[in-house]
Simulated scan of single mutants.
Amino acid sequence: MSPPPRMPLVLRIALIVAVMAAIFAVDTTTRYEVAAAVFYAVVILTTARLLGRRALVALCAACVVLTVASLVFTPHGDLRSGLINMGISVAAIVMTTWLVLKMETARAAAHEAQAQLLRIARIKSLEGLTTSIAHEVNQPLAAIVTSGNACQRWLAQEPPNLERARQALERILADAGRASGIIARVRSLTRGEPPQRSAFDFNDAVQEVLALSQAGMEINHIALTVELADGLPPALADRVQVQQVVGNLLLNAMEALGPVPAAARRLRVESARDGEAILFTVTDSGVGIVPGMSEHLFDAFWTTKDEGIGVGLSISRAIIEANGGRIWAEPVVQDGAVFHFRLPAAGAEPRP
């Protein structure tokens, strides 16, 4: 169900002016003892999100002027009570304006802090992928050098072996394409673009992240099992953001496997259809979830890592929920942990 259309800005301003005029009329025509001007504070509260700082200050000044004018034009009542009520009304208007301005400043600071946390989390995630990325890029580069040397040898023969040289050049082009693809995947994971929900192949997105993590798993002797369900409908979410969450869950699982003997390091990645949604699961045989820890796992700045900053899972939850999904964790019966998240499907028929 779509949200109701918002009232046009001009109409809202006209309504505010009408309300202020009504307050002025009531405050002027009633006795001094009636402090109707205090309702100008309500007007300021309701218009806080529509106006900038200068416009809000100007509105405050206008409300104060109208309050004083009401006192001047009020025809009857106890003047002393009127002065007291005017002072109370002016104080309420000024204090409300000050509080609103402070609140808007705090909200802007909170948005900036959130953006900064996203940048920090992205950098920390990249630190964990550095070894894997270097290994992945080094492989096609080393192959390019080998094929280049071979090509030189084939061309140096008498007569030159053009067929073998052509084959070596084809290998160079293919390996250069591999290196370019790796760099493109890394760039897609580090872009700080606003969320753009669209339909995409969920399994392909997961495979791209796994390709970046593969070398790190091999270096750390982690046995990886991948079970991606066939026939999944397209996911409806921001592809890059979802890949960031997948990468973060994989990194967390790899770190949890660090203290475990190499022979027992197992990691399973799964995707499945769950009604009208897609379910993603990462299971590890690591140190597991300590009792009482699960309720804090997704809290900002809460971490059990010596060098952690405690924002990875918090931001992952924010990303998944912003894309209409849910993320949660649960311990494994023996050792290890399981992390799940669900994302809405695009509603298309499952692919064959």
Rank of each mutant, 00 (worst) to 15 (best):
H76F: 10
H76Q: 09
H76E: 13
G77C: 06
G77V: 05
G77F: 04
D78L: 08
D78R: 06
D78K: 03
D78T: 10
L79P: 10
L79K: 05
L79F: 14
R80N: 05
R80Y: 11
S81V: 04
S81L: 15
G82S: 06
G82W: 05
G82K: 05
L83C: 02
L83Y: 01
I84R: 08
I84P: 02
I84T: 10
N85P: 00
M86R: 03
M86L: 12
M86Q: 07
G87A: 14
G87N: 07
G87Y: 05
G87Q: 08
G87C: 11
I88F: 13
I88P: 00
S89H: 04
V90T: 11
V90K: 02
V90G: 06
V90M: 07
V90I: 15
V90R: 05
V90Y: 01
A91S: 13
A92E: 10
A92W: 06
A92S: 15
I93V: 15
I93N: 02
I93D: 04
V94G: 07
V94D: 02
V94Q: 05
V94N: 03
M95K: 06
T96K: 04
T96R: 05
T96Q: 12
T97F: 01
T97Q: 04
T97C: 15
W98L: 14
W98S: 15
W98P: 03
W98D: 13
L99P: 00
L99Y: 09
V100K: 00
V100D: 00
L101A: 08
L101G: 08
L101K: 02
L101Q: 06
K102N: 08
K102E: 12
M103C: 02
M103T: 07
M103W: 03
M103I: 00
E104G: 07
E104N: 12
E104D: 09
E104M: 13
E104C: 07
T105V: 06
T105P: 00
T105L: 13
T105N: 11
T105A: 15
A106M: 14
A106Q: 15
A106G: 07
A106F: 10
R107N: 07
R107A: 11
R107K: 11
R107C: 02
R107D: 10
R107I: 09
A108Q: 13
A108K: 15
A108S: 14
A108T: 12
A109N: 12
A110L: 05
H111K: 14
H111R: 15
H111A: 07
E112M: 04
E112R: 02
A113E: 12
A113V: 08
A113W: 04
Q114Y: 12
Q114P: 01
Q114W: 08
A115E: 09
A115W: 03
Q116A: 15
Q116N: 10
L117D: 10
L118I: 09
L118R: 14
L118N: 11
L118D: 12
L118Q: 13
R119F: 04
R119K: 12
R119Y: 04
A121Y: 01
A121L: 01
R122I: 02
R122P: 02
R122Q: 13
R122M: 12
R122Y: 01
I123W: 10
I123F: 15
K124R: 12
K124Q: 10
K124T: 09
K124L: 10
S125R: 14
S125F: 03
